[in-house]
């Protein structure tokens, strides 16, 4: 962007922009630092030997840098297996959630039918009951379906919730309704409206939902704990508990396990966030 003013104003405008940008960076750095610090502690502790875990210094001292802790985790519990199980379950749940929720959200946001808002409120209300109480009936259902202690038994209840529908509905509401009218005039069916027009426009919402569902399910703890008995089918959060039980608190191994468990999430996030923030490169957002 060319600047038509004389030299001194340009310099002050540039200086102001420099300080604005620098100031922004400073704030961001400060905040990231605070948020990141426990993470640093975690990684460093995972490299300590057990005797040094309680000591003040964050860095490993005489015990050395125990990268072997990471191998040790694999020895003590079937970590690789837990990993695969967690990723498997989380991916399935995400896929199912995104797909079914987007269709349902479309029905609530874009279609007009009698009783729509009341049904939506009812739908919402299903989320409000604490999940604990539904545990035993759900368990009984699983027994009837024969899905106890299986991975599909973990996937199915988690894949269907009103959460995704709610989220996507809110996103779809921000899309101007002019598009719908235009499509109707063109004679497009509702499905085409959904699949070709609305869905691509809701992409940030879809990505967000995908990230949320994946992360949320990856960390889900109590339901897998109750559902699964066979150790080979366990997911990661249950496996982590092994290191914090009365059988011994091996904090360094625990931190190593947690660090490793984060890697898939990092990958998912870094890959998907590119799609999430469309339009940043265009410099479209200010204020």
């Amino acid at each position: 962007m060319t600047d038509h003013h004389a030299a001194p104003p340009r310099r002050s405008a540039n200086t102001r922009r420099f300080f604005n940008s620098a100031g922004l960076h400073v704030v961001l750095i400060a905040l990231s630092f605070t948020l990141f610090l426990p993470f640093v502690w975690m990684v460093l502790t995972s490299l300590k030997s057990l005797e040094e875990v309680g000591l003040e210094s964050w860095l490993p001292g005489e015990g050395g840098w125990n990268f072997s802790n990471y191998i040790e985790v694999f020895r003590q519990i079937p970590f690789a297996r837990y990993f695969i199980n967690s990723i498997f379950v989380a991916t399935w749940v995400t896929l199912l959630q995104v797909f079914t929720s987007s269709m349902a959200a479309f029905a609530f946001a874009r279609l007009n039918w009698p009783g729509r808002d009341k049904v939506f409120l009812l739908y919402l209300s299903t989320m409000m009951l604490p999940g604990l109480v539904m545990m035993i009936p759900n368990y009984q259902i699983m027994i009837t379906l024969g899905l106890v202690d299986t991975l599909p038994g973990l996937i199915l209840p988690a894949a269907f919730s009103a959460f995704g529908t709610f989220l996507l509905r809110q996103f779809m509401l921000t899309i101007p309704s002019a598009l719908d009218e235009a499509a109707e005039i063109d004679g497009a069916s509702k499905w085409r409206l959904f699949w070709d027009i609305i869905l691509p426009m809701t992409r940030p919402g879809l990505i967000t939902l995908a990230i949320f569902t994946f992360m949320g399910n990856y960390h889900s703890f109590f339901w897998p704990l109750v559902m699964l008995r066979t150790q080979e089918r366990y997911t990661l959060p249950i496996g982590l508990l092994y290191f914090d039980s009365s059988a011994g608190q091996e904090t360094n191994l625990l931190m190593a396990a947690v660090t490793m468990s984060i890697v898939p999430l990092l990958i998912v996030f870094v890959v998907l966030q590119k799609y999430l923030i469309k339009g940043i490169q265009l410099g479209a957002v200010k204020g």
């Binding site: 545990m135 035993i136 368990y139 009984q140 027994i143 106890v148 202690d149 704990l225 109750v226 008995r229 066979t230 150790q231 366990y234 249950i238 059988a247």
Partner: peptide
Amino acid sequence: DAANRDTGKQVIQGVSGV
């Protein structure tokens, strides 16, 4: 079976036959 020692879990699963 070191994986199923949680009391709450033993109860829930136990009363359901597992």
